[in-house]
Design a protein around this nucleic acid. Structure first.
Lengths: 202, 202
DNA sequence: GGGCTGACAGATGTTGAAATCTGTCAGTCA
DNA sequence: TGACTGACAGATTTCAACATCTGTCAGCCC
């Protein structure tokens, strides 16, 4: 059917396609193989299991979230503004995906939910970016934070209602923006507090 | 079978019992009626629908969460300590229920998930308690918060990873306590910041 | 010879007929 | 007379036979 060599990349593309069309419950390895015009046994030469293939798809999706954020984390300029832009982009990115194609979003959320390790790595990437912004802000004297890693985790957790897909059903609540502003105010004030050693202390 | 009069209270007790034994998926109105030794039609004289009965059970469960917290909210003494005790009690209350009897916890979480209005009221109760603690702290000069309602909602949202049941699967993560301390530090610092008008501003 | 096939075993999912459930109400009986 | 029953219609759930899927591997071509 197709003459190009069978590669992990082509399999991944086909897998995304089949997942998009059939959803995570119905998408089978046989479907993916059919899409590629090969037997399903061939898929298993490139991925050891269906779970590994799904993990790879999930990683690709999460990378499409974290890569644009990396650009914001790497920017120059005042840390508070960068932090706000980073959070806005994260939240807007999740929200627009959830609204634009709820089924596809649900598909990816389900996939991610089944690959806890992949999520852990993704959260690590995101909090790493946050930590860099916050550490930068501390060096610039804009934030008064002793432990940027802990503060990054705190900001990430504190804002989870607005970016964690388990809360997606509430993102259409009309109060959601006001609620975010309240959390943002609280977090910004908490980071900004001048010359006092906190953060990371028990 | 039983000679006492059939009251909403007795039906509620029986419903809790049946839910505990069979779970939300298997518990039927017929089971509840059998437990009471009456026909299932009789149950419908006291509750208009199965959903209403489930809502009533859910309300009882949520009240058993919010009532002990009310006591803490009403205490005298420094607001930061009271706030911390309130959060500790909320989190410990949820966590111990989830650990002690995960099936029953899952039952109630599912019931609650199906009565969004009941949840909204419960969250309103809780943020109301928080707002009183925070307003009190502001009057005492311990907090510098212009809008206690917004700050209460912010604290509630910021800590949701530690008390919202949708995150229950992560409560056994060994880092969860450290993560809470980080959020607590951030929030406390955000509330404590002296003489500056924030909170509620965009 | 090495990427690929296709048949296979055991696990998982589908399907539709039968059973059960929800909510109603005319009628019972205390 | 009014709390309660029990039979009923339509909706939902169960269950077991059947179909499909995952993962493997001996063997086939290119």
């Amino acid at each position: 059917m197709t003459e190009a060599a069978l590669t992990p990349e082509r399999i991944l593309e086909a897998a995304e396609d089949v997942l998009r069309r059939f959803g995570p419950a119905k998408a089978t390895v046989v479907d993916i193989a059919r899409e590629l015009g090969v037997s399903h046994g061939s898929v298993y030469r490139h991925f050891p299991s269906k779970a590994a293939l799904r993990d790879a798809v999930t990683e690709g999706w999460l990378a499409s979230v974290s890569e644009p954020l990396e650009a914001v984390a790497a920017e120059e300029g005042p840390a508070p503004e960068r932090l706000r832009r980073w959070l806005d982009l994260l939240i807007e990115s999740k929200r627009s995906r959830a609204l634009k194609d709820p089924e596809l979003f649900a598909t990816y959320v389900q996939l991610a939910g089944e690959s806890r390790e992949v999520i852990t790595a993704h959260v690590g990437t995101l909090t790493g970016q946050l930590a860099r912004i916050i550490a930068d802000g501390s060096e610039r004297g804009e934030f008064g934070v002793a432990d940027p890693e802990a503060a990054a985790r705190a900001v990430f957790d504190a804002t989870s209602r607005f970016h964690n897909p388990v809360h997606a059903a509430q993102w259409s609540d009309p109060a959601i923006d006001a609620d975010f502003e309240a959390v943002w105010s609280l977090a910004l004030a908490g980071l900004t507090v001048p010359n006092r050693s906190r953060q990371g202390s028990v």
